[in-house]
Design a binder for these strands. Structure first.
Length: 303
DNA sequence: AGTTGGTCCATAAAGCAATG
DNA sequence: CATTGCTTTATGGACCAACT
């Protein structure tokens, strides 16, 4: 049996950064935070559970509930009231409202002119949580190009495709486009209660990045976070949706692909730079992951 | 020489349950 | 929440063969 020793000495040169505990959370201005989020986005799973264009009635109302899906309202006309956590909003036509999953919400008509709106329910799974359990965004924004947003929602509501398969894929594509447009126009911050996890993911990311040419063991990574290897594996997988070892391998493949596309290094050299002592194994692994042998891949994608 | 592929097997990684 | 001991699973390196 392998004894997993806890190696304190390997921690010193890379101490985990403590989050400073500010209430607002960290604005995602640094590439460091974006890095962790884009790591999470590697296994983003998007699902649209419903999408409609609805003329609400005056009894449109629910004042206390917590859905397990996110919602967008794109207001076309009318007026109404929305609450997310303790923030109350009176959205106007032309505004896009976002209500994150797992937060307490309420909504109500407030006059005899209830909302006419596009709306959708969707999830954006990233690791253990929904993307919006990692990041915080404003709940209501003005949309500049209202025609375009209307078109997108129309496509979301009535996705076009010559088969159920294509229709579903189109719908996901449109949902992603709406999401991207939304995220493009809002400040994104790391949610405070997730910042420690984001920091931890960043520590792992940086270490793996720097040591990819060596073989990075799970024990080393566990030591970085001062956690027992067995616990670390479970922790990492639960939070980030991928086992540490698979994460490292993903990084190795990303680097291998880049090297194959952008350099003329031999396969042997690429293997060495991505932590494979053995070219045979590198080739086999690469084919398993990409469906191509390294030289095939280079032939297809190298510029 | 360089690359790809197959099989074997030691051991690292992952999973599990008990415990503090 | 985190650690620990134990079991199961999967990986990756060694070695060999074939092909360009």
């Amino acid at each position: 049996m392998r004894v997993r020793s806890f190696r304190i000495e390997s921690i010193r040169d890379n101490p985990p950064e403590r989050y400073n505990g500010e209430s607002v959370g960290e604005l995602m201005t640094s590439s460091k935070s974006e890095q962790a989020i884009s790591d999470l986005l590697h296994n983003l799973q998007i699902d649209v559970t419903s999408a409609h264009r609805t003329q609400c009635t005056s009894n449109w109302r629910d004042i206390d509930y917590s859905p397990d899906y996110n919602k967008f309202y794109f207001i076309l006309d009318g007026e109404g009231w929305i609450r997310v956590d303790d923030q109350q909003i009176r959205p106007r036509p032309g505004q896009l409202c976002f209500m994150p999953a797992y937060t307490n919400q309420g909504y109500s008509a407030i006059s005899d002119k209830p909302f006419l709106k596009y709306w959708c329910h969707f999830t954006t799974r990233a690791g253990a949580f929904d993307l919006f359990q990692w990041i915080g965004v404003p709940y209501c924004i003005d949309i500049q190009d209202k025609e375009r947003m209307s078109r997108l929602f129309e496509q979301l509501v009535e996705p076009q495709g010559n088969s159920a398969l294509v229709t579903l894929i189109r719908q996901k594509a449109v949902m992603l486009e709406i999401l991207a447009t939304f995220l493009e126009h809002v400040p994104v911050r790391i949610l405070q209660h997730r910042s420690e996890e984001i920091n931890r993911l960043n520590i792992i990311h940086d270490y793996v990045d720097k040591h990819l040419h060596l073989s990075v063991s799970v024990d080393e990574l566990a030591a970085l976070l001062h956690l027992h290897p067995n616990y670390f594996i479970a922790y990492f997988k639960k939070r980030f949706g991928i086992s540490p070892h698979k994460y490292v391998n993903r990084k190795r493949m990303e680097k291998a692909k880049t090297l194959l596309m952008t350099t003329a290094l031999s396969i042997k050299e690429v293997a060495a730079l991505t932590g494979f002592a053995d070219t045979n194994h590198f080739t086999k692994f690469f084919r398993k992951e990409t469906g191509f042998s390294p030289t095939e891949f280079r032939g297809i994608y190298a510029s």
